[in-house]
Design a protein around this nucleic acid. Structure first.
Lengths: 167, 167
DNA sequence: ACTTTACCTCAACTTAAGGTGAGGTTTTAA
DNA sequence: TTAAAACCTCACCTTAAGTTGAGGTAAAGT
């Protein structure tokens, strides 16, 4: 029983196997390892061997990238996982919650952007006085919501001066 | 009257003015011009002069970038504008409609991604057999919608082989 | 008139996220 | 046992979207 459990945790996947299963290039795995996103052990012949949970880490990495999260941020998230033991259900779940929030922010951002495109580029107004597209402070006034920020979720939102009117 | 109209369309903004008003760097304006996204004329001293509608083009460029659209695609969109005359209300409106669609696709994509993160990373399941996160074909089965594609809007969606089960 | 800004071109640098290929070693399969 | 397939490192290449700097010219303010 105990030995069986130990065997299960032993790193036994080769880089090629991981690459095939996770559908990433071997070079990407080297790259991720270099950046500290995944870890491997070496066999006697200096070849990489992976524990199976690397597959989940890669799945997380790929999911994060689809969300437009950089590898740097993904690393930060993965770094919150315990490195002393193989992550549990709860570990993954906690991580997932954080990412849902990120996604919700991004979705909200896109929706703000949509109402901006809708109400502003679409209006056809060519007067710089009234068209909020010329407001580089990224604040859009919409009928429904009041002032809406168009900046990306985490970026600082310092106010900027407006364009001069009409010339 | 006529001369007044002509004067209005005459390129009279310097690169520095445009940079300040549009809140972009001069180098970015050179870059955009190089890529064919904006156009300028030269004065006697070989300095760039812009028509005022360049400001709207830049606003469009910036809005597009916020949507995650590449400059290449933005150029394609801008190229649909007439180059023989200054764009009208309708021209901008048409362009805006196309972009709304793009944005709607992106939003829908993010929402699909969210349900994936929600139902899959979050579930904590560690069995590769049942967890759709291990399905690199990017198809996620959700209770509500049936099969959902996770690929990005325009990307080709070729099916890929699944991970082997459990080892 | 003169000095400070602003502008010009061109080349090289930057970051992210890898991909490519050379030159050499290890594993695996017949 | 030997050939093919997989692996190793290291250095350089790629794309996007610019930025930076050098060396020189034009325009604007005093």
């Amino acid at each position: 029983m105990k030995t069986e459990k130990l065997l299960r945790d032993e790193p036994n996947l080769s880089v090629g196997k991981v690459a095939t299963r996770a559908d990433v290039a071997v070079s990407a795995l080297h790259f991720y390892e270099n950046k500290g996103l995944i870890r491997s052990w070496r066999n006697n012949g200096n070849q990489r061997r992976y524990k199976k949970d690397v597959l989940r880490r890669i799945a997380i990495i790929k999911a994060g990238q689809k969300m437009g999260i950089t590898l740097g941020e993904i690393k930060d998230t993965l770094d919150t996982l315990p490195d002393s033991r193989t992550p549990t259900k709860e570990d993954w779940a906690k991580l997932s919650t954080a990412w849902q929030m990120k996604l919700d922010e991004k979705i909200a951002y896109m929706q703000r952007l949509r109402s901006y495109v809708d109400g502003c580029i679409g209006c056809g107004c060519l007067s710089m006085k009234s068209c909020p597209i010329y407001n580089p402070g990224d604040i859009v006034a919409t009928q429904a919501n009041g002032a809406v920020w168009l900046d990306e979720p985490d970026k600082a939102n310092k106010a900027k001066s407006c364009y001069d009117n009409e010339n």
